[in-house]
Amino acid sequence: MAKPLCTLSLMVEPDFTAAALPLLEAGEVDAIEWSFDIGWSRDALPPGIEPLLKFFSDHRRLIGHGVTFSPLSGQWHPRQADWLDRLRDEVALRRYNHITEHFGFMTAGDFHQSAPLPVPRDKRTITLGQQRLKMLAEVAGVPVGLENLAFAFSPRDVAEQGQFLDDLLAPVDGVLLLDLHNLYCQAHNFNTPGTELMASYPLHRVRELHVSGGSWSQSTLEPQSGPIRRDTHDDAVPEEVYELLEHALKVCTSVEYVTMERLGRTFDEHEAERSAEQFRSDYRRMRSIVGGH
């Protein structure tokens, strides 16, 4: 197996691009992951983003990551049909090596956007999701897949997500984007060993890994349960995620991309350079671990 490509999830906010520029200039970024539907919501992309995407597209080093399709929304909405139409234009414009979306739903009723939430696994939701994935695959024309979810309401959600993902991906021979921080969130919040949880996923489908940081919150209803880990993409990568990366690179034998995620507008305004350096340090540590396998 060739070494996975060290990949950056590209954000367009100035604090992110300022922090990432030294990595790009030094040739330390092998590939770019682009959330194309974030770009659709803007009149124009900031200067420099289009040429960067073109460069990585031309060199077959671009992967796509949708955010707003909401494949497991019960209702098929015209917004989703529009999304597929725009994806058709997107894949004509840029060459993506694969395209992924998110497990779960984030739109329903009066809400056209939300945080992604889980869906119970049964025959109906499996059939629904399989059809949505098939539609995505037909438009994309490249391998498609799903990312595991960070949030779970209960141990039941945690226990059934791996099998649910395999159910959805199997008919299109889809790829699993295994987000290691999302896995860490579920492992911590439900007191399950991360490696044990990882083993419950269809690891033969893993083509991409996500690495990121997050934050903590506290329940007022059940404070005795301890802090709750959240996937906020706004801080340093925790040690536990690096340990999961080491393990994933051993047990997932088809990984092609290892991608660092960090949201724009999350770098400390008062300590901008320290915050940016922490991000670059995390990226370089990820690269070093990948290089060692």
């Binding site: 929304s73 019960g74 209702q75 098929w76 989703q80 049909a81 739903f105 329903a108 009723g109 009066d110 809400f111 939430l117 869906v119 109906r124 939701t125 059939t127 629904l128 059809q131 949505r132 539609m135």
Partner: peptide
């Protein structure tokens, strides 16, 4: 495209 109206109502609620 399939819609599951019952699931949609659950998600909206």
């Amino acid at each position: 495209p399939i819609s599951d109206e019952e699931l949609a109502r659950v998600q909206a609620a």
